[in-house]
C-alpha cells in the first residue's frame, strides 16, 4: 500500500514508523515546525518537508497515486483541509484524520471525514477504568461511543435468561461456555462461569453493571 502520513509529531512519526516496519510504502510530510527528528533512524520511508497545503509538496509525496492518507498534525484546521482535498479532489480511497481538540470534532462530521479522536477516546477509557475493573471493554467502535464489554456470569445469575440483561442500550454479542462461543438467542439461560460479550454505550454498560453486580437478596 502507498500511504501518505501528514504531520511528523509524536502521533505521525509513530504511525509512519509502524507502517513502514510492516513493509508499506510510506511517505511522511513533515511540517516546517515539526521536523523529521521524531522519526527513528531506521525509518524506511520517504520524508518531505514543507507546507502541506502546497500542491507541489503533496504531489511529490504522491497524492495522485496513493491508496491512503492520514492527516495527523496537531492543527485541526490543517487536518480538515488536507483530508478534504485528498478525498474530494484527489479521490484518495482511504482518508483518516486525527481530531486534536475535541471541541472541533463537529467540523469533521460536517466534512464527512473518518477521524480518530485520541483525546476523547483516552478520556473515555480512563473514565471506565476509574469506575469499574470487573466489566472489561474489549473493543472500541468509532471513538468509544459504542464498545464491546466482557462480563463473567456469577453464581447468583445461574438459571436466569440472558434477556434479563438486555436493557436499554445493551445488545448481546456472544456467550462463551466451556471455551466455545455461541450466538445467543434471547431465551438463552445463563450458567455460572459463562462469559458474555455485549455491545453497549457507556450509559448502557453503566446500567448493566449496576444490575449485574448488585447484591441480590431476593430470589
Amino acid at each position: 500500500m502507498q500511504i501518505i502520513v501528514v504531520g511528523c509529531g509524536r502521533m505521525g512519526s509513530e504511525l509512519a514508523y509502524r507502517m513502514s516496519q510492516r513493509g508499506q510504502d510510506v511517505a511522511v510530510i513533515a511540517l516546517p515546525d515539526a521536523p523529521r527528528e521524531n522519526l527513528p533512524a531506521d525509518f524506511q520511508g520517504r520524508v518531505f518537508e514543507g507546507d502541506v497545503t502546497n500542491y507541489e509538496v503533496l504531489h511529490r509525496a504522491g497524492i495522485e497515486t496513493c491508496d491512503a492518507l492520514v492527516a495527523a498534525t496537531n492543527s485541526d484546521a490543517l487536518n480538515l483541509v488536507v483530508a478534504h482535498a485528498a478525498a474530494q479532489k484527489f479521490h484518495v480511497k482511504t482518508v483518516v484524520a486525527r481530531n486534536y481538540d475535541p471541541a472541533y470534532r463537529y467540523l469533521y462530521e460536517m466534512f464527512d471525514l473518518q477521524i480518530v479522536s485520541a483525546t476523547s477516546w483516552a478520556a473515555q477509557r480512563l473514565e471506565e477504568m476509574v469506575y469499574h475493573g470487573e466489566v472489561r471493554a474489549v473493543f472500541s467502535a468509532g471513538n468509544g461511543e459504542v464498545e464491546v464489554y466482557e462480563l463473567a456470569v456469577g453464581a447468583e445469575w445461574d438459571g436466569h435468561p440472558l434477556s434479563e440483561w438486555m436493557i436499554a442500550d445493551v445488545i448481546a454479542v456472544s456467550v462463551a461456555r466451556a471455551g466455545r462461543a455461541h450466538l445467543p438467542r434471547p431465551d438463552w439461560i445463563l450458567k455460572a462461569g459463562d462469559v458474555v460479550h455485549v455491545s453497549a454505550t457507556l450509559d448502557g454498560v453503566e446500567s448493566l453493571r449496576a444490575l449485574v453486580c448488585r447484591p441480590r437478596e431476593e430470589k
Binding site: T53, S75, A77, L78, L80, V81, H84, L107, M110, F111
Partner: peptide, 9 residues
C-alpha cells in the same frame, strides 16, 4: 489559509 478555508465551508 487553512482556517479561512474551513470557515468558508
Amino acid at each position: 489559509d487553512e482556517v479561512n478555508l474551513v470557515l468558508c465551508y
